[in-house]
């Protein structure tokens, strides 16, 4: 956790490198999250949609970003969290979560920080960009 009064515009969150995504990761996340869409866990379904292989659930990457955020700030301070999915995450990918404080301002009676977030794969592919607003005091 960070000392919140040291946060300023430009503060970078320590990057979080995720372990390689395996088929087991996708199967466990399907069961745990409740998203049983077979395109992420059944290669036959993926092929029937014209894809070569299954690919990771977008919400798995957003869950990693959530982990990254709550590692940095107590969860009760998160006011909002959003993400846009840019590209699929293939099996064997190694995603990295990163974030940077881009604004600090008063919002509804408290001071909040806006954090621009990203998930990037080892080959540079941007799979997800997002934003969170967290209360500082």
């Amino acid at each position: 956790m960070i000392t919140l009064d040291s946060v300023k515009v430009g503060t970078e969150l320590p990057p979080l490198v995720i372990s390689e995504i395996t088929r087991t990761t996708l199967a466990l996340f399907a069961g745990a999250s409740g998203d049983h869409n077979p395109i992420h866990i059944d290669i036959d379904v993926a092929k029937s949609a014209g894809l070569e292989d299954v690919f990771a659930q977008g919400m798995l990457s957003m869950a990693y970003l959530g982990r990254f955020l709550t590692n940095w700030v107590p969860q009760e301070r998160i006011r909002s969290f959003e993400a846009r999915f840019n590209a699929i995450t293939p099996v064997y990918a190694i995603p990295t979560c990163s974030g940077r404080v881009t604004a600090i301002e008063p919002t509804g009676g408290e001071r909040t920080a806006t954090i621009d977030l990203a998930v990037t794969l080892a080959d540079g592919t941007s799979t997800l960009v997002g934003r969170a607003i967290v209360a500082l005091d």
């Binding site: 977008g58 919400m59 957003m62 998160i78 006011r79 909002s80 969290f81 959003e82 993400a83 846009r84 999915f85």
Partner: peptide, 8 residues
């Protein structure tokens, strides 16, 4: 899935 947002 294009976008996802949460407000808490």
């Amino acid at each position: 899935h294009g976008k996802q947002a949460f407000t808490y």
